[in-house]
Simulated scan of single mutants.
Amino acid sequence: MPTRASEIRRLLESKRHQFNRADDQFQSLLQLYRDAFRQLARLPDSWIDGHLLDLPLSLDGSLWRFPERWPHREASLDWARSQIQGVTTFAVDGSQIYPSKDFSLPIALVQIAWFENPHELKQPYTKEIAVDLLAPADFQDLSPENFDRLVNMRRFQMETERLVQFLESHAGQPNCCALLDGSLVATFAEAFEAETQQVYIDCLVRLLRASENSRVPLIAYIDTSSAKDLAELLQDWFEELPEPRSLVDAQIVAQGLRWGDRTPLLRCRRSILKAYAEQSDRLAYCYLKTHDGNPVRIELPLWLVESGQHETVLNWLRAEVIAGGGYPYAIETADQAAVLRSDDRQLFYRLLQEWCDQEGLNLSLSRKLVSKLRRR
């Protein structure tokens, strides 16, 4: 029986006061943190030296204003072309087919795709894929509830390995940039056991080292960030601030940001970075306005700031976002190339069945899947 819309509306109406109270409390907390954020440039030099990497120049002391404004989209595209002409951008994304209960043995497929765009009329772009198969032996020491975790880890390894290859192969070349769709800080892995957590850390440290050693810029782009680095910094300094609770950095800095504006660059000091060896204090972040929603989080290796290249690289990113209509074009294109759709999954299952039959392997399939494969 379908859900009754009238019943849901009645329940919402009956709890309206709870929603109003929660919203009032959230808005009050948000305003306290926004007021504190505006005080960044007025904090003592000892605090600024330890955290802020570039002081803002705007009147309120908390934002870097993007100077360009365009009357129409064509003008923004002209600006984007002027910034990124001759700059090679590179992005990787991945997709996977997890082990299925329809098979008697765990088997998975991982696919990554990369997009390399030289932004030169006479030089074509490159779009390629690579695949890997995880066989039953790869899962033998794992319980079924951890199968998907192994597949995700292998995908992450493949994506970062390909980014490292790009960085190393373009060492010393000007006007190149690698884009990572996700964070350079492995906080997401803290819920895993130590061995798995270390795999993610090793991948990211290798990526940071490759960027610094090759002198090729690397940008991490996090469209919807739940990070609280800034909120926790503000609470540490302004002792009267209450706990941020569900409040995140992107909400604090959103007020007053126009397209292209950003916050100051800050040094990331999250606890997991202590495991990053010499890269433990070599990561910067800021928040950048790229669309109608909350600003996105940007992470950069610190060498880019030290070399003074960060604003040029951020303009490359702005140009990519303009080309992509609100999301970096290179990342968007890699994502579209990498995704495994329903037809791809059916093809994989059919090839797997045919190969097992040919090799005389005893791999049993559920009757439901056999029926689907026959019909399609």
Results as ranks from 00 to 15, higher is better:
60 D>V: 02
309 Q>R: 14
223 D>I: 03
335 D>I: 04
346 Q>E: 10
157 Q>K: 06
43 L>D: 05
175 N>Y: 13
70 W>P: 07
161 E>R: 02
232 E>M: 09
105 L>D: 13
347 L>C: 06
43 L>P: 07
310 H>L: 01
163 L>K: 03
15 K>P: 08
245 R>L: 14
135 A>C: 03
181 D>L: 08
253 V>L: 11
71 P>F: 10
65 R>C: 01
151 V>P: 05
50 G>M: 15
111 Q>A: 12
107 I>E: 07
45 D>S: 11
11 L>I: 11
341 R>G: 12
48 I>G: 01
202 D>I: 00
32 L>K: 10
309 Q>D: 08
215 R>D: 03
262 R>L: 15
33 Y>V: 11
311 E>N: 04
106 P>H: 01
115 F>W: 13
123 Q>K: 11
318 R>W: 05
218 L>I: 06
225 S>D: 14
305 V>I: 15
349 Y>T: 04
51 H>S: 13
326 G>C: 01
362 N>R: 12
111 Q>T: 12
30 L>I: 02
276 Y>D: 07
313 V>H: 08
113 A>D: 06
293 G>Q: 01
261 D>L: 15
366 S>P: 10
248 V>E: 11
153 M>G: 02
92 V>T: 12
21 R>M: 08
7 E>H: 11
327 Y>Q: 05
53 L>P: 14
196 T>H: 10
116 E>Y: 08
164 V>K: 02
333 T>E: 04
372 K>F: 11
45 D>R: 12
288 L>R: 02
273 L>W: 09
156 F>E: 04
34 R>C: 01
14 S>F: 07
258 R>S: 15
23 D>W: 05
5 A>V: 07
239 E>C: 04
290 T>Y: 06
240 E>W: 00
31 Q>W: 07
286 C>E: 08
152 N>E: 03
173 Q>L: 11
49 D>N: 15
184 L>S: 05
52 L>K: 14
363 L>V: 15
354 E>H: 02
286 C>T: 11
209 R>I: 04
250 A>K: 10
121 L>T: 00
244 P>M: 00
315 N>Y: 07
159 E>A: 07
177 C>Q: 00
44 P>V: 02
196 T>V: 15
347 L>I: 09
321 V>W: 06
330 A>N: 04
332 E>Y: 00
204 L>K: 12
295 P>F: 01
308 G>C: 09
89 T>H: 15
237 W>G: 00
28 S>V: 13
299 E>A: 06
372 K>R: 12
354 E>S: 06
207 L>A: 06
365 L>H: 11
64 W>Y: 08
71 P>W: 10
288 L>V: 03
327 Y>W: 00
176 C>Y: 05
197 Q>H: 12
107 I>S: 07
88 T>N: 14
137 A>Q: 07
236 D>G: 04
362 N>Y: 12
201 I>H: 12
339 V>L: 07
329 Y>M: 05
168 E>I: 10
143 S>K: 13
334 A>R: 02
156 F>W: 00
230 L>H: 05
261 D>P: 15
308 G>L: 05
276 Y>G: 09
187 T>E: 11
370 V>T: 12
239 E>L: 02
94 G>D: 09
199 V>W: 08
64 W>H: 13
112 I>N: 02
332 E>W: 05
281 D>H: 15
147 F>S: 02
128 E>R: 10
158 M>H: 01
58 S>H: 11
66 F>L: 08
27 Q>C: 00
178 A>V: 10
208 L>R: 00
204 L>V: 02
116 E>S: 13
31 Q>D: 06
341 R>C: 03
247 L>N: 01
